[in-house]
Amino acid sequence: MPSGDNAFMTALQLIVGLDQTLVGIVLLSLQVSLGAVAIAAVLGLPLGAAIALWRFPGRGLLITLLNAFMGLPPVVAGLMVYLMLSRAGPLGSFGLLFTPTAMVIAQCLLVLPIIAALCRQVVEDLWQEYEEQLRSLGTSRGRAIPTLLWDGRFSLLTAVLAGFGRASAEVGAVLIVGGNIDGVTRVMTTAIALETSRGDLPLALGLGIVLMLLVALVNGAAYLVGESARRRAG
């Protein structure tokens, strides 16, 4: 990768030169973080909605826990996944440690509470608004979930993007479970950490700029999709 004295020039060189190593790292970063967010959304949205609609003992505790886990330190998440996936751990036989799959699992653990907790809030508000109407139509709570999720899709998109922000920014979890292996599990954040520790600060910051652009791009795309849908929805 190029290396100079100026971070912005380095970032520009990285982008313009389409550095092969960088392209690989960027693709893997997207693959891991988007994958983690997709899985977390598939699990977290229905989970959040279910907690919003049903009343059961321990619900308050569950909500508190879910909110607290939004602040789960990535290193702790990484450590938990490491111990599970290690050859000496309960899931060791799958041989997943130090693979991108392990990184997806770790980030999923970080993103799931955010999506579920924010979704619960959104759906709960909507439920208060529509409860009578849906009940009068004879809709059960279970049947109401897809309707409510669909109705809250714009707010939920923000929840999912918050999850993506968390996933693409963290370094602690992927470093532990991925091992930052060159060409296999090295992503943007671990590459930045590596270049920082090699004292190549311009390259590290250059990579940081590229990462920020990337995240902005994903958010921009999500915004455009949301806006066009909103307009069509009237």
Binding site: S86, L97, N180, I181, D182
Partner: peptide, 19 residues
């Protein structure tokens, strides 16, 4: 060869766990 680079203490620990 996939290299996981850590301190020697941690590297030995990774070996001990069979990782």
């Amino acid at each position: 060869v996939r290299v996981v680079a850590v301190g020697t203490g941690q590297a030995l620990n990774i070996g001990r766990r069979g990782d």
